[in-house]
Design a protein around this nucleic acid. Structure first.
Length: 321
DNA sequence: CGAGTTTGACCAGCGC
DNA sequence: GCGCTGGTCAAACTCG
């Protein structure tokens, strides 16, 4: 097939194979509707090339929570941030530290992550930039720089599944499939244990892109859709029906639920374009409670740029400037 | 007719 | 080693 070429344009792939289940309880424990963006998360998000966007026909959906699963695992309670963002900052910070240099964790990082235990440090070796530390040669064998996820039978036997960075978030939505600017093809559906709702598996229709996503409804609250992304897009979104690309961050930001503090929330692929914010705010009308807005720090008026990261992931035209 | 979805089967990883 | 479960494949089917 064609999805062989370096599926990791950013070279930021850091695998994580350990457990990564989404913390299930916290949804309630966390004050409703509050977003939790770890600097690290947003980093990866953009690496994923996200452009989260609610579908037109849906009244609205609140991003309940955002969690980079891998990190979440390592940090004692990454999601316990309702107003306690700092609580996880030790973790987020360290994560950021690891990636701050590159802002995307693509390079430099060091294993200096006290918070990130062996679990991560092993699988997420900072120096993976060029070769996924966790990719035992035997797996990708097939064809040299082949992406970890080999969507062919060749991978079936003797080849361990390689996990790419995963990211999950919960949204309150009536529709399962959130429009994020990319086209997805469903390739499977499975019943999930302890959940009356099936889990759907999607992969990016771009043959060169290995990004996948899982969509399922929370068994606790059927109104909540849990979307998990895995991998990063090696191309650009197809755009949204309404025209104009908007980043989920922008959307969140517009909703007042997202605070682009310094190097935390800026990312090449999804750089926040302030020019579109107003329209987003109007069209999306993502509700935000007073309590939420209260607990959120003010948005930083200036978004840092990181040319270094833009690298091959974002064509010049996509950059803000 | 091509693209996307459905669905049963198969496989790998993990816990016991 | 065995069984369970999640993840993926791929043929059949649906839809535009």
């Amino acid at each position: 097939m064609e999805d062989k070429e370096g599926a990791d344009p950013g070279g930021t792939e850091f695998t994580s194979d350990s457990s990564w289940s989404l913390p299930s309880g916290p949804v309630d424990s966390v004050s409703d509707g509050v977003n939790y963006f770890f600097d690290r998360e947003s980093s990866i998000l953009s690496e994923f090339g996200w452009n989260l966007h609610p579908v037109d026909h849906q009244s609205h959906h609140d991003i309940e929570r955002f969690a980079e699963l891998d990190r979440a695992e390592s940090c004692s309670r990454p999601l316990d941030l309702a107003g306690n963002f700092s609580a996880s900052q030790s973790c987020a910070a360290s994560a950021a530290a690891a990636g701050s240099g590159g802002g995307g964790g693509s390079s430099s990082g060091t294993a200096s992550n006290p918070g990130l235990s062996a679990d991560v440090s092993t699988s997420n070796n900072p120096s993976v930039s060029s070769s996924s530390s966790e990719d035992p040669p035997e797996k990708s064998t097939g064809s040299g720089g082949k992406p970890p996820e080999i969507p062919s039978k060749a991978r079936k036997k003797g080849q361990k599944r390689i996990r790419q960075p995963r990211f999950a978030f919960m949204t309150k939505s009536e529709v399962d499939h959130l429009e994020d600017g990319y086209r997805w093809r469903k390739y499977g559906q499975k019943a999930v244990k302890n959940s009356p709702f099936p889990r759907s598996y999607y992969r990016c229709t771009n043959s060169k892109c290995t990004v996948k996503k899982r969509v399922e409804r929370s068994s606790d609250d059927p109104a909540i859709v849990i979307t998990t992304y895995e991998g990063q897009h090696c191309h650009h979104s197809v755009g949204f029906p309404r025209g104009g690309l908007i980043s989920h961050e922008a959307a969140a930001f517009a909703a007042g639920q997202f605070t682009p503090t310094v190097s935390q929330f800026y990312y090449p692929g999804v750089q926040l374009n302030r020019e579109i914010l107003p329209s987003i705010t109007q069209s999306q009308q993502v509700p935000i409670s007073a309590a939420e807005s209260r607990s959120l720090p003010e948005p930083t008026p200036q978004l840092p740029t990181d040319e270094g990261l833009l690298g091959d992931m974002v064509p010049p035209g996509m950059r803000n400037r």
